[in-house]
Every structure is written in structure tokens, then in C-alpha cells.
Design a protein around this nucleic acid. Structure first.
Lengths: 342, 342
DNA sequence: TTTAGCACTCTAAGCATGAGAGTGCTAAAT
DNA sequence: ATTTAGCACTCTCATGCTTAGAGTGCTAAA
């Protein structure tokens, strides 16, 4: 039952804001006074109670104020937050900084990392743009059992990707072989990023395969193998939720363990649109170490040519509006750079 | 009065070891039992008392064991520590890791950072080798007042270095001008690292200038402008002295603030010998943020061609023997790489 | 010179206490 | 049917007290 009343939305939003601001559980009375809500604290308390029942708020202990849950943050980010764009003066300042730079990708990435970290008060992370070089050499489909088929994708570089597909209906090996040939001829040597442009002319069986193909290609060029630029690690340490350095350690491990980072970037289905920003709140159940953190990610670059990822890592109690616009803005700047210089 | 008796040295050494191992103040009784010293705890207490008077030990509070002071660590590193070399198997393992690598400097540096961090359980830091390109364009000496003269060094790139020299005797501007010309002609276009090879033929006045020149040149190519490779930041967070993340933050700031790092590398007079290892204990009075840390540094590369710096940052309670040999060993590996590949 | 023995000091942990913060609930007010 | 005032209830946090234990420093004997 997701029907939050307008007032509940307002209160949830204020609580998120206030908690992000103060890092302390927010009390009904405090809210009424600070924001001059035209109602009594008891009313607010009732609403808070409802929001707690719905899983958007929680209490650290019985006699404390409320704190947003992960769900609360998600609702806030997804439904309540208005898309704050950066003030023009800030855009100008940042653009100016980049314009005063040599056209050296390393320097741009470093500057971007620094700006991102400073403006979001979080840790920033940028992977250098990776040229997309994966070209398809051959595609082979093998019937295995019932509606299952093994799809093998051989790349020109020799890498192999394979995947079990579940087809809509049982299909014979002959049919699959024909399909294999068709796909191989169609895509051999291609380095495709928007395979879906062919979509319409395909049967649904073909589309299934196509979807997988696309997935693999996107995935393969998402793994960062090159340099990673970071800044603002100490920003994270300054946050009260990381006063215990053990907690901080868990969060920062992401930035040091490449395998973990690869995992994250690989499993995170980033929207293909360059510039699309993705928000991961509280590890999303998959990453225990990140249970206190949020991550905001975006790809940048030119699709099919070279792309990289940039993002920030901060406490869950992070200023989402600002961080998201910042990530989006810098993603744009770096994309422009790649488009021009590549 | 630095005359420590052999027994005092032994005890100091054991205390340092034990404290590094346990991170807890070490008690006289504990020492006697664990190391089967053939004496009573009272005797050890007396010696400890003496060592405390001399400034090598301190007590966190009246009824606690002893902990080494910064002086204590220095004495240990300088006088007591035997130069532990790495076990042959470890050298082999590490060499093997590098040998399996492409001859790509970036990958080597990254690997070196990782190995260094893992083996020392501290944060590692490596600056990419910087080609030494500073060439002298012009040298000008200007008499100012009494025995003072202002020396200005103009580099081909346009950078200017200046310094007030104190000469052994008052010298007229004419003489200085003559000298200026001589030096300018002698060194113009040169990119000198071992100016002292000319030493013998010079007067002492000239030598003074020469010494400064050398200093500037060495200093100028010590500033890291290129990439910096790090690893093991979370190792530092695992140490109990950094359980309070504020303390950790102070330490790690060094790794993020380039200006601070430049400061450190510039002010630290590194021995010219490549491979020489320098140990900074507790910030040495100059860096407050590092008051809980120690740093072990070494330059690597080919003098006059390209050099970089590598080091580890850890708690003062760090395993010096191991860290120093590790730094020295990796310094050697990277130096060999630079010598071969440059 | 070393050591046994003991008094002394300081920390860390446990426990009780009280103030304060904030809620939940009930009954009255709108 | 909401909203609100009022109050009881709960939980935390800070404070102070007490005790056990660790480790030293000192003294006097070996």
C-alpha cells in the first residue's frame, strides 16, 4: 500500500533532509518548530508512526526521534526529490577550471575526481575511459535440454562469453545452427552498442538472443582495467557514521579491492544512456560492506567508442540532490571531452 | 648522555618489539616471563625507569606498562635494529610476480604498491618516475649585503629558483658577475646530477654555489607531478591507534592532499643514493597530522634520467625491519625496471 | 647489584541514580 | 473524523561510586 498522503510525503521529505543535515534522529517537535508546520507535534507523531509502519522510518531506540530506513531513502530519491540542477555560477566555475587545463585526459580525470569529492563531501571514483574494442567474431547456439540452449560468443580478441538461454519454445539444433549462421554473418566484425536498432525485424526468439548479446557487450566494456582516479577518501572518514574506523574500513574496502569494484560495476545494470545516473542505496542487499553507504554512478564517454564510469561513495545520509546533479554534470563534461578528443 | 648499557639496549629493543606486536603497554613482568630474561621484574623495572628518564620510554598512565617514545623508536631504528633482509623465498615470490607482468610501467607500479601494502600491512605510496628534464639556462649572482648574495637560477622551461647564499667572505658584484658568467657557460643546457664531479677544481666560494645548485636540481625533480599509486589505505584503518577515525583522517590526509605530499617529499632530504631508505618517525615535529605515524621512503630510478619515490605510511608502531627491507627491495626492482626500459 | 615484598596509583568495569528527550496513547476539542 | 493537549512510559546518557586488577616505585634484605 504505497499511498502516502501529501502530508506524509512532506514529512518524510523533511525528515530525510533534516537527518542528512544533522545526522541525528529527528523528533516531531523539532520538525514542527524548525519548519513552522501548521500542526502540532502530536499530529506529526501520528504520521511518523504511519511512516514507520510502512517501513520508511525507524527509531534507533524507543525514546528517540526517527531516522529514514533504506526504503525511506529510496522513496525519497525516487519520488520526492525534486531534480535540483546546479546553480549557474557553479557550473560556470567548474567549466572554467576545466577550460584552464591542458587537453590531457589524465588531468581532466584527476580534476573531475577532485571537484566531485569536494562538492559532494564524499569519496569520488572515476575509471579512465576504456576504448570499446570488443568485436564479435562468431556466434554459436547449442541446444542442450528442453527450452534451454547454450549460447557461445567468440570475440575477435579470443575472449569467450557463454550463457544459458531459456527460449520461449523448444528449438531444434538445426534451427539454432541456422540462426547461429545468420547472427554470425550479421554481426561479425561489428562492435555494437545499440543492437536494438535491429529489433523490429526479429522474431521473439531472435530478440532473446539479441538481448543477451547486448548485455554481454555492455558488460564486457564496463570492467575497469585501466587507471582509477579517486579523491575525497578522507571526506568519508569525517562523517559521524564512520567515527568507528571499522565501519569506515568496510566502506572504503570497495575503493581498494578491484575485484569488489569490478563486481559492483558489472552487476550494476547501468542504463545505456550515457548521462543516466544510478543510485545504489545501502548496498542493496548485495554488498554487506556497503550497508551504511550509498553510491551514485554514471557512465560517461561515447557509446561504442570509449566509456568510463564515475561516481561518488558516501554515507547513506548523503545529499542526494546535490550529488546526483554533480555526477550528472561531470559526466557530461567528461563525455564532451571524450567526444572531442577521441 | 647516550650511554645505554647492553642490558638497557636489550630491554628497549624487546619493549619496542613487544609493543609493535601487541599494541599494548608492556609490563616488566610480562617481559621477563615471555622472553625468559634471567632476572626479576624489579630489575627490569629499574632499567625501564632509567630508560624513561632518558626519554626513550613513557607511561600512558601511572600504573601502566611502558610504551616507546618517538625517541625510543628512533634509537631502535638507528642503533638497535639489525638489518633484516627478506627471506629468499619471499624475494623469489615477488620477483616472480613481476616477471609475469608485461613491461608496462603502470602495471609495475600498481603491483609494487599492492605488494608493498600487503607485506607491510600499511599504506603504500609510489610516485611514477619523472624524467629529469630540468636544464639550466642561466645563473645570476647578485650581491645584496655583507656576505649575503642572492642567487637566481633560470631553467630552460622558464622556472626560476632563488636562494640567499651566505658566502665565506664579502664579495663584490663584479666578482659575482664574473662567476655568474662562468657558471652559466659551464652549465647552460646541462642537466646535472653529479655536479660534485667538478668539485676539485673549484674554490670554496664556487663550491658553496655549486652545493646550492645541486640542491635545487635534486629538489626540483623530487616533486611529484605525475600519477601517484597507492594501496593499503584500509590497512591503516585496521590499526588500533586509528580506531578513532579522526586520527585516521589526519594520517590519510597526507595521501590525498598533494600539496602536503609535495611538502613532505621536498623537505625530506633524501640521500642521493638511489636505494637509500629514509625513516620519518612521528612527523618529526614538522607535520602535526603525522604525529601518530611513521613513514619510510626511498627514491628509485636512474639518477639524472628518471626517478620516483616510493614509501609506506603506517602507525608509529610499525614493523620497521620488515618495512625497510621491503621498501629497499621494491626500490631495487623498480630501479632495475627504469634502467632497462628508459 | 639484585630481588622480594608491599604500599600506592590509576584504569576499567559494573552498578545505581537522575535528568532529559521523545514517543504512544487517551480523552477532550475542533 | 481530525487534531491536539496532556501525561505516563521508556530509553539513553551522563555522573558518581565502588571494586578488582594491573603495574609501578620504593625499601629493606639478600
Amino acid at each position: 500500500m504505497n499511498g502516502l498522503s501529501a502530508r506524509q510525503k512532506r514529512i518524510l521529505s523533511l525528515i530525510v533532509h533534516e537527518y542528512i543535515f544533522s545526522a541525528e534522529a529527528v523528533a516531531s517537535k523539532h520538525l514542527v518548530e524548525k519548519y513552522r508546520l501548521g500542526m502540532s507535534s502530536a499530529t506529526v507523531r501520528n504520521e511518523m508512526s504511519a511512516l514507520t509502519d510502512q517501513g520508511y522510518l525507524k527509531q534507533p531506540h524507543t525514546s528517540a526521534g526517527r531516522v529514514p530506513t533504506e526504503e525511506g531513502y529510496r522513496y525519497f530519491v525516487g519520488q520526492l526529490m525534486q531534480d535540483t540542477s546546479l546553480p549557474e555560477t557553479m557550473r560556470a566555475t567548474i567549466n572554467h577550471q576545466f577550460s584552464q587545463m591542458h587537453s590531457d585526459i589524465k588531468q581532466w580525470l584527476q580534476l573531475a575526481a577532485t571537484v566531485l569529492a569536494n562538492e559532494t563531501h564524499a569519496a569520488s571514483l572515476i575509471t579512465a575511459p576504456q576504448p570499446v574494442e570488443a568485436r564479435i567474431k562468431h556466434i554459436q547456439l547449442i541446444a542442450t535440454h528442453g527450452r534451454q540452449a547454450l549460447a557461445v560468443l567468440v570475440m575477435e580478441g579470443g575472449q569467450i562469453h557463454q550463457h544459458i538461454l531459456t527460449l520461449e519454445e523448444p528449438t531444434s539444433q538445426e534451427q539454432l545452427s541456422i540462426l547461429s549462421n545468420k547472427f554470425s554473418q550479421l554481426f561479425a566484425g561489428k562492435n555494437l552498442h545499440n543492437l536494438s536498432q535491429y529489433q523490429e525485424t526479429f522474431t521473439s526468439l531472435e530478440s532473446t538472443i539479441l538481448a543477451w548479446l547486448e548485455d554481454e557487450l555492455v558488460r564486457s566494456d564496463r570492467l575497469p582495467t585501466g587507471e582509477i582516479y579517486m579523491d575525497g577518501i578522507t571526506n568519508v572518514l569525517a562523517e559521524p557514521e564512520f567515527a568507528d574506523s571499522e565501519e569506515a574500513r568496510r566502506a572504503l574496502r570497495l575503493l581498494e579491492e578491484r575485484s569488489m569494484l569490478q563486481d559492483l560495476l558489472a552487476q550494476t545494470v547501468l542504463p545505456e544512456t550515457i548521462g543516466g545516473v544510478q543510485v545504489l542505496i545501502g548496498g542493496e542487499g548485495n554488498w554487506n560492506d556497503l550497508s551504511q553507504c550509498s553510491i551514485i554512478l554514471s557512465r560517461y564517454g561515447s557509446p561504442g567508442i570509449a566509456t568510463g564510469t564515475l561516481g561518488v561513495l558516501g554515507p547513506m545520509r548523503m545529499s542526494y540532490g546535490r550529488s546526483i546533479s554533480m555526477v550528472r554534470f561531470l559526466s557530461g563534461i567528461l563525455s564532451d571531452f571524450v567526444a572531442e578528443q577521441w
